[in-house]
Amino acid sequence: MQIIQPHYHAIARTAQDYERMAMSGVVAVAEPAFWAGFDRLYPETFIDYFRQISEFEPTRAADYGIKHYCWVGVNPKEAENPELSHEVLKQMPEFFKKPTVLGIGEIGFHKTTKNEEEIFEAQVEQAIKYDQLILIHTPHLQDKVRGTKRTLEVLSHMNVNPERVWIDHVEEHTIREPLEAGYWVGFTLYPITKCTPKRAVDMLEIYGHERILVNSSADWGPSDPFTLQECIVQYRARGYSVQDAIEIFHNNPVRFMGQNPKFDIKPIRLETIEESSSSLVEN
């Protein structure tokens, strides 16, 4: 089965992960810009990071037949430094011209501070101005509800098209509002601190398939790119067809990211081929 991994931090992973993903049917990954595990001091460090994910990483993925796309942005944690963030923002439009950059992300809130909000709004405004897709991170653990609510409040005062916005890392307690407001939502499958494969399938059963993306994130922390495949196995084990799985794990990422024409993968459908006995003999 062909799979798209819509949120994947490839720079934190080994080539072996690319190889194993390719063996399991992954045809494309998309890499948002995120926190490196420490706060960077210089705008230039961000720029080199954006070069890495928009220029170098696609070549590493291509070695395994995987298409690599990316997003640029100042992540919520480092948005706490507005001076640095504004310097980075000035240089982001150059990256929108790159052939694999899909939009601005992951942006949003970490601790839901005023500084974070200022940079979040500035990046949403930039996305609107340059007609870019938006990928929004929602906070971890005890901060998730508050940060998700504030995210929706901020967006409601801005002129965004919800269909072009993906609000990620939702769980049972935060899925309803963004989905009802018309946004895309994402389930991030982590071993312990976010959603798990079984709970993701539960939410698919409750809320349906529309405007839902499933991903592993897979970064430098405790995470595993193959929680996505685990989720597919759980989904199939509950009796859903391969085509149902394709709709969620391949076609939905295509539907969202394909709103940017640079994402040139199309939805797929399984077909059986009726071969007559005579044609089988000829072959």
Partner: peptide, 17 residues
């Protein structure tokens, strides 16, 4: 803490299922 939290949420989800 986080592992126990995760186990409890999983258990709640199992009952819901």
């Amino acid at each position: 803490y986080l592992e126990a939290r995760c186990s409890l949420v999983e258990l709640g989800a199992a009952f819901d299922r």
